[in-house]
Amino acid sequence: MKLARKDLLGIQDLSVEEINLVLDTADSFIDVSTREIKKVPTLRGVTVVNLFYEPSTRTRTSFEIAAKRLSADTINIATSTSSVVKGETFIDTARNLEAMNPDIIVLRHSAAGSPHMLSRAVRQSVINAGDGAHEHPTQALLDMMTMREKKKRLAGLRVAIVGDIAHSRVARSNIYGLTKMGATVSVGGPITMMPRFIERLGVEVHYKLEDAIRNADIIMMLRVQLERQDTNLFPTLREYARYYCLNRKNIGAAKDDVLIMHPGPMNRGVEISPEVADGPYSVILEQVTNGVAVRMALLYLLSGGKS
């Protein structure tokens, strides 16, 4: 089995079968990371470029570890911004990279659509490691993997996503993925953080935290980007925390066996209280572990995956 596509740009254009294939493959890679020798020769001779235009420790490290466990060669390019260095365009950069013949380019970029542009310009596979507020497909896949592992299914689950939906690529990718897989998604947060016509994506919309998480099997709390304080999306962090911080009390609205997820990094005390973040419902570190497996699966499947 392999993914019959050149790139992984987003969840929106994946089929249910493709999502299942990635998750099943990721499951089978889990044990590689727990062996004594955490390396298999599967991708020997394959070059993976991690092209990161936006700072990221977690995602970049996860991709790098995933590639190394499969014996691929990895190159990390961290560049602060691409914003039009006079004379050289993003497409120029892409063509230069292409000329060096890597096999897979993993791109993180603050501008939505950059992986799509890259994929059109180069013949190599492109994996979207997060593009602006558009998509973060590997995050959604690792989230779905974790939910499936813990709840044994995705169809029929009630998943609440709470926070700045408008600016969240994690929210979008999860909405696309979970609704495809038959879960019910409810989004919660201040109305200023809800993008226009979000309900047309097939989600419930709530402005009160308790309503959003009612009877939820999973609660995914999104990070509040502190720099957005100045844009009047919410009056103050204090007020945000007062109404949207998940704590031991309001979590009672969800199911008793609810799982708490967070794509990280967390603001403890803003969107999530420390006792919840570090409490028994939290699967936040399992998400990170599964992230490596999902990325191994994708690197493998996109390289043409001989099993």
């Binding site: 602006g132 558009h134 016509f197």
Partner: peptide, 16 residues
């Protein structure tokens, strides 16, 4: 803003 604010900007995650 980068494009019209509407369902498509919501889908694409672009400021409207």
């Amino acid at each position: 803003g980068l494009m019209n604010e509407g369902l498509v900007s919501t889908e694409l995650g672009m400021p409207g």
